[in-house]
Amino acid sequence: MAEADPIRRLIHQLSRLPGVGEKTATRLAFHLLRADRAICLDLARALEEVSAQVGLCGRCANLAAIDPCPTCRDERRTDDTICVVERPQDQWALERAPEYRGRFHVLHGALDPLSGIGPEQLQIASLLHRLAPAAVREVILATNPTVEGEATALYLARLLKPLGVKVTRIAQGVALGSEIEYADQGTLSRALAHRHDFG
């Protein structure tokens, strides 16, 4: 049932956001009420615009206000490599690595049989469609190193390799700046299994 009181309604709507409990929602709501009225209106406008304008890019399935998205339109990027990620925010993170100048593809999730998420729920058909013109030489699988992410990478590798495209997986192991003493067993096992020639 909708709340009649606008303050309570705002708190209720904010608390529906991921990672926001009722306490934080209340804090945010009263912050907005105390803030400059323009801040509230700008926020409302931004939400309305996001809701009305943002959709999936017809090429990479990333969220964008224009189609194709700015990354797909970027002529400085090369078409011969596609980096596959689970979520739009993963693409944003990878765009911080200036070494990569290829394209992206967003799956919008990972295979999760326990939750009933299979290949049909992911943007896999659109990825295969992109490979059809044969301009793509390499697909980098940058799904998360979780059980679900690994299963997704294995599934995609099985689909992609028969198409003659080079399939690679992002490296896994000890994080930069971390200490081996505090790394978990799984990370260390992966780091040792994927060691490479050096020096």
Binding site: P113, L114, V147, E150, A151, L154, Y155, R158, D184, Q185, G186, S189, R190, A193
Partner: peptide, 24 residues
């Protein structure tokens, strides 16, 4: 505390799918 990560499950799709079935 991680005692056994069963890392081999991450190397083969059939094993990972079967593990999900076993656990469910």
């Amino acid at each position: 505390e991680l005692e056994e990560p069963f890392l081999g499950l991450r190397d083969r799709l059939e094993s990972s799918a079967a593990a999900a079935y076993v656990v469910e």
